[in-house]
Design a binder for these strands. Structure first.
Lengths: 204, 204
DNA sequence: CACCTGTTTTTTGTAAACAATAAAACATAA
DNA sequence: TTATGTTTTATTGTTTACAAAAAACAGGTG
């Protein structure tokens, strides 16, 4: 049998979560917007059960905020102090990942990362900034997962999402692509310090 | 009207979550134990709905691990590398909290913290180590909440719980009380550096 | 005996009805 | 007009029933 890259199967809930995250990141769902379970259920053609699960999940990720018997709404922007803390925490995690990956990245990995960069550039060219954000995240996610699996992704992901809330309008400059190019090239050349520097420069 | 400290009202789900956390921390629910929704529902005298919510919540906290259509089980111990990372992250958060609290702690706060220390000592004397853990956490939680509210607590809490999994059997030494005493005294004297040092020494 | 295959059983995922709580609208009295 | 208390409405929390998936089991085949 041919070795095939496993195609990612997403559960219903994961797909809905993904969609809501996009809506929040894109600004379609502005901070403090109240989410109505019934409406969401109708929108996605489901019952309220799975919707409630997704809401709980996004609440734990910090994108939503829920109060007992009062429903959930889109969280507001982070206090600047907390945002600085989060940047520091996320850097800490990503630098850890880089360090772990020192010698374990294969040619296949580099190819995957190259492909992601291509997608990133394409998203820019299409001016699809929601997609840019998603691809950007997927680049980092690739490294984080490779370094620490689901466990590490789970502690990292909330920071990324929470921070994105604060950067609604991504600086449209394609500096984003360049920054990730720097990271990838440093990794390819095996220069960990350079990679670490590039990562630090990218997370801000 | 007399100023009264607001009594904490816990939702049904929060109480169940609390109980399950205790069971996991105490070791009653060992790593890799599979949780059955129906059994849990019967144990707590509820239907499966709220139980599922709690399971999802504890999964996000890292105490449980869930797979689609396969249920949830108690998470296993952290890889030592990841544990080191988590210690570093948690220190980062708690040092931030100390820094924020520099000038904002009141006499009431100090009294509250003193009371917690008294509870901690009492739990030790009773050799109720599950309670010790809970009170220990509540001490830190007090500071974290004071410094950054629910937002900060939410990013901090998972680290604490996840780390506790690794320290099943708390070193029974009452050094724990002393360590927290050091933190509190440093805070009282307004010596931030000393407080920071004491916190670092306590998180390990 | 190992291995595969189809069936039964158990468990989780989803849907829909019901109960309880909170928000809103309204009426009443100071 | 404002404040308070009541009724109505809307929304969330919970239960129950049903559908789908996974696990356990049994029988047949090499």
């Amino acid at each position: 049998m041919v070795a095939k890259r496993p195609t990612k199967i997403l559960s219903v809930k994961d797909q809905i979560a993904e969609q809501l995250r996009s809506d929040i990141i894109s600004g379609e769902l502005a901070p403090n917007t109240k989410l109505n379970e019934k409406e969401l259920a109708e929108r996605f053609g489901l019952s309220r059960g799975p919707i409630r699960d997704v809401i709980l999940q996004l609440t734990k990720e910090g994108l939503l905020i829920s109060k007992n018997n009062c429903g959930a709404s889109v969280n507001s922007l982070l206090d600047p102090k907390l945002q600085k803390l989060m940047i520091s925490l996320r850097r800490n995690i990503e630098l850890f990942a880089i360090d772990q990956l020192k010698d374990s990245l294969t040619e296949d990995d580099f190819q995957d990362l190259e492909n992601i960069l291509t997608e990133l550039q394409a998203a820019f060219d299409n001016e699809d900034y929601t997609e840019v954000t998603k691809v950007d995240i997927s680049f980092h996610n690739y490294l984080i997962y490779k370094a620490g699996g689901d466990e590490l992704v789970n502690i990292w992901y909330p920071y990324v999402m929470r921070m994105r809330l604060n950067y609604k309008r991504l600086t449209t400059s394609s500096a984003c692509v360049d920054e990730h190019r720097l990271i990838l090239d440093a990794l390819k050349s095996g220069d960990i310090n350079k990679a670490a520097k590039a990562v630090k420069a990218n997370i801000k």
